[in-house]
Nucleic acid binder design. Sequence first.
DNA 1: TATTAAAATGCAATCGATTGTATTTTTGCT
DNA 2: AGCAAAAATACAATCGATTGCATTTTAATA
Lengths: 339, 339
Amino acid sequence: MNNKPTIHDIAKALNINSSTVSRALNDSPRVTLKTKEKILKKAEELGYKRNVLASSLRKNVTNTLGVIVPRISRHFFSSAIQGIEETAYLAGYNVIICQSLEQLEREQSIVNGLVEKRVDGVLISISMETLNYQHLEIVKNSNIPLVFFDRHCNEAGNSNVLIDDFKGGFDATEHLILQGNKNIVHFSGPNELEIYKNRLAGYKAALKKHNIAFNPENVIVTRLMEDDGFKSMQTILNLKQKIDAVFSANDMAAIGAIKCIKQSNLKIPDDIAIVGFSNEPISTVIEPSLTTIDQSGLEIGKTAAALILSYIENKQIPEKGENIVLKANLIERNSSKRN
Amino acid sequence: MNNKPTIHDIAKALNINSSTVSRALNDSPRVTLKTKEKILKKAEELGYKRNVLASSLRKNVTNTLGVIVPRISRHFFSSAIQGIEETAYLAGYNVIICQSLEQLEREQSIVNGLVEKRVDGVLISISMETLNYQHLEIVKNSNIPLVFFDRHCNEAGNSNVLIDDFKGGFDATEHLILQGNKNIVHFSGPNELEIYKNRLAGYKAALKKHNIAFNPENVIVTRLMEDDGFKSMQTILNLKQKIDAVFSANDMAAIGAIKCIKQSNLKIPDDIAIVGFSNEPISTVIEPSLTTIDQSGLEIGKTAAALILSYIENKQIPEKGENIVLKANLIERNSSKRN
DNA sequence: TATTAAAATGCAATCGATTGTATTTTTGCT
DNA sequence: AGCAAAAATACAATCGATTGCATTTTAATA
């Protein structure tokens, strides 16, 4: 009763060989149309469903991509996953989604599981704890294409799909400067992560261009949760030294900061201007609406999936790795515009 | 080079039989500790990774759940997926995520693919186009446990994990009534979907309890995107008849309505009060903050995963189906509170 | 040191589909 | 009709791990 029919059942019922059934179901030119029809009819009749496990085992191909993200429900990542899934679906691939929850240990175990499942490719956005990349070696050693998106690592030879974090950081900061701000604080994330390094570098470059001295004390490193933004802002407000703007390396922390500022009855952007990073949907809704850097998860996801699919289909992983850098555009909204 | 080592390679290297290797790797009591250690060492040395395909084929178990949602990036669904993944991970299962994009045809093809992949269970939140459930028969016929979450269907015998939509609709509406509103419009979704039917039923019941006549014209059916809410509100504002509140069956449409109202220079909640449904994170950020019904995707996801895992582990699908109804609590915020 | 029970390991079939090669059938031509 | 060439189908090995049963080895007892 639980036993699903196999090609052998179809073959037996029609008194032919299972290899012919297999070929018919795969629409091979080696089988007559008449026989194909007979087989298809019988397959339908028996409620036959191909056993993809057996097929994958034999063909050594699973038509499955493994995707590892820190946390599925984060809007940026769920958008990226959506993009990956859409692209994969159109190419006939499934995606196995796993979340590291920012824990290296989980990431390691997940990577292992995906290799054991023989996925055809792995797309990863690394956790905040991922400071060495040894656990990813096994993917490469297994000849499984590996593509980083957004949160990548600084090793040579990897393929990455990123947005232009440096330019994003630069534009955000320069925008604040052009609005007349001079003392700009930067909320940064764990500085082992390339994306935060690059956003910070952009921030510094913009200051330099406009002859503003870089003050290390103006960089506050946290995990950039909403709460972190709130607390960082509290700290700042308690300082004697006055600041006039914040460039936050993500939107959540920026929103925390906005909430804190509003609570203190200060005006945004008049007292403190804010720019975020990511253009999360929430940034259009908060008041004042948040100036931010647009970073389309959907786009990154689609691009990353297309890239890894090209490696898979060509059965060739480029030796040197490729970098695809998507544009990061400033979106000016009310949290930073002075009149 | 690409050829990964198998248990046979380990066996050959140690001059023992592959069955012993298999047993050792599965920590069977039938193998001596000494032999196990020898095997484990060699496995490590060769970089052996179990081929889960072969294992699954033989054992007829994949340790994989299929999950079908309309759209991954919708906050409610990504939270649900996060919950499913967390619970599945702890039980040693992977999840394959697929999105129907609200299209029946995709849903059908996805279901088929998951059966072919021999997933151990299917969790689904159906698309808005899903009016008949024939394509789900094959899951049941294959003896694969099937659990609906949130967007379920009204067939008997199914297992569902839901929140109490009726009570949610009732509480939302009664709350508006108790705030003094009499002419309350309801934004509803496609009325083939049970969740919207039930929210509507709750709305009606609350009106009845408070002796307010139900006016069919006060129910506006759309797909409840933000844009739909905006347009519905425009239509309403153009009517001669005045309304004083809206209960929207989701938050997105409520937010669209709020944006429209603000644009018309009317006051919320003084001129029009609004209540949404879902408690999306955005609802705390919009101004005024949105009164809504809390519906934790994370909770639903965890519960649904736990339910289906219990079916899988017990190798028994209950004949009659189970309904797990999670509480739906009203969260009062500023969009509805009159002073 | 036999003898036997118990423990450890080996053998071989199996899961279901695929595929290179061999065999049979059909077709076309004279 | 007879024969070669082409087309269709059959055979059997294979992918890698699992597992019931058989065999060998070890340990225990007399």
